[in-house]
Design a protein around this nucleic acid. Structure first.
Length: 468
RNA sequence: GGCGGCGUGGCCAAGCGGUCUAAGGCGAAGGUCUGCAAAACCUUUAUUCAUCGGUUCGAAUCCGAUCGCCGCCUCCA
């Protein structure tokens, strides 16, 4: 299995430190607002990566941090006359709700910055004792010059950065590249006590402190958006390796941006949709299919047209799942070996092993759907064993890995037995009309049911219905 | 200025030295089935991979140049 490692700028064989255990850290949200669909792409692609590792038999510990203290939070709290923790609590809940709606597996731990002050302080102290940090009257900075590997992730060298950079001028820094570990509190700002005086953590230190605490000094995979490579991840390396002297991360994975009209979707440009609004109009599975259909590392130009077409593609898969369920319900006994399922598993694993090539995995999914459908068309009375195998394949790949299909959900046609009986009554009446060649009435019944969201399907064995 | 990425059919998008006259999705056209639909299936829809050169027996894939687009270097997934 291969993963493209940003640190090495090439695909590498995936060899976790302590197989079958895999430690996986992803940068989560700053909970000052709803996250947008671009953020969702990173969360979903990390989720699919994780799910595939589980599929492969790894025992994955997955940690996603929640940044619940920072400038934006304080600003929002001030604007709304609330405390920062009220704001954080509101958006943390919203985040967890939206994540669930997107069918993203819950992380094993969602550590919060405010709950790790102890770890953050002691990490800074460690850096101080190793002379990698210095205190200037209450502000503590990281001394970038003291860390040899600085720039190894982003491919930047400190000299270039110094020349062209638009880095804020800060007289107290020894070097403009030095970044804040501990920020001295201003008046009326939330603050925590420390040996340097009251203040709060800098922008990057929480990730170092929390990943070390929950996953150990060296973690297998660390993922995040492309825009985090510099400075965030670069600084995390400096902090963690500066303190432990050990390699911080084996494999760095970075997700491409979601663009709108070829521009990065971002809060500051204002060209974003929140995941929430998108979820009101489209299924989570459609979003996941759309994201699966392009590789995680490249850009994806987002538009509603694309989502529409993903929704159509998903519909094809959902119809297929229904067909499978119907076939299964037929309960025809017997063995079945005339269809080679194993080749699809092989192909699926082959492409996913190659740096999580979900576009090809999705293509295999559609091939499978077509081939099985074709097999159904060409062979009458297939036994349940055949459908069972088809179902297992879909559950394992499209279901458990890509998260675009759910067999349980498609079964709940009839949560209301009165409703069910009424629909079946109408179907019977329509059948009578059809028998009388009263197609006008038959079509009227079908059309009216359709406008209520109930779609009828005639087949040789009778009429079935589904709710849209 | 430094660093990185991208340009493949009407749209999206894989492939990254031979199996490519290029996967898959959406769309479009025709057909099978059906009373008509729906679903499903079949056929067609790029001899070509931004352009121009080069390397090679062989290039969408490697190298160089050109044009166009984007990102990071400041909070950002």
């Amino acid at each position: 299995m291969k993963i493209y490692n940003t640190l090495k700028r090439k695909k590498e064989n995936f060899e976790p430190s302590n197989p079958p255990k895999v430690t996986f850290y992803t940068c989560g949200p700053t909970v000052y607002d709803y996250f947008h669909i671009g953020n969702a792409r990173s969360f979903i692609m990390a989720d699919i990566t994780r799910r595939y590792l589980i599929y492969k038999g790894y025992d994955v510990k997955f940690v996603m941090n929640i940044t619940d203290i920072d400038d934006k939070l304080i600003k929002k709290a001030n604007e709304q006359g609330r405390t920062f923790s009220e704001v954080a609590a509101e958006y943390t809940k919203a985040f967890l709700d939206d994540i669930e709606k997107l069918k993203i597996k819950k992380a094993d731990v969602y550590p919060k910055a405010t709950e790790h002050m102890e770890e953050i302080r002691s990490l800074i102290e460690k850096l101080e004792s190793r002379e990698r940090a210095y205190n200037v009257s209450g502000d503590v900075f990281y001394d970038v010059k003291k860390f040899e590997g600085y720039g190894k992730l982003s491919g930047k060298n400190t000299d270039d950065l110094e020349v062209g950079a638009r880095i804020e001028l800060n007289e107290s820094k020894r070097n403009p590249l030095d970044f804040t570990l501990w920020k001295k509190a201003k008046e009326n700002e939330p603050a925590w006590e420390s040996k340097w005086g009251s203040g709060r953590p800098g922008w990057h230190i929480e990730c170092s402190a929390m990943s070390t605490k929950h996953l150990g000094d060296t973690i297998d995979i660390h993922a995040g958006g492309n825009d985090l490579i510099f400075p965030h991840h670069e600084n995390e390396i400096a902090q963690t390796e500066g303190a432990t002297g050990k390699p911080f991360v084996k494999y760095w994975m970075h997700f491409g941006f979601l663009n709108i009209q070829n521009e990065k979707m971002s809060k500051s440009l204002g060209n974003f949709f929140t995941a929430r609004e998108i979820l009101k109009k489209y299924r989570a599975e459609s979003i996941r299919l759309l994201f699966s259909q392009s590789h995680y590392s490249g850009p994806l130009n987002f538009s509603e047209e694309l989502l529409e077409s993903a929704e159509k593609g998903l519909q094809k898969i959902r119809n297929f799942v229904e067909n499978i369920n119907e076939g299964l319900a037929g309960n025809i006994p017997g063995e079945y070996t005339k269809f080679d399922f194993t080749q699809y598993y092989q192909q699926f694993e082959e492409v996913m092993d190659d740096d999580f090539d979900t576009p090809r995995a999705a293509a295999i999914m559609f091939d499978f759907v077509r081939d099985v459908n074709k097999h159904i068309v060409e062979n009458d009375n297939l036994p349940a064993a055949f459908y069972q195998q088809a179902k297992i394949f879909m559950e394992k790949t499209a279901g458990e890995v890509l998260g675009i299909v759910s067999f349980d959900e498609s079964k709940d046609n009839s949560n209301n037995s009165l409703e069910k009986e009424l629909i079946e009554l109408l179907i019977r009446l329509r059948q009578e009309a059809k028998n009388d060649k009263n197609y006008q009435l038959a079509d009227k019944i079908r059309d009216e049911l359709k406008s209520l969201g109930i779609v009828l399907k005639d087949s040789k064995t009778g009429t079935t219905y589904k709710k849209e």
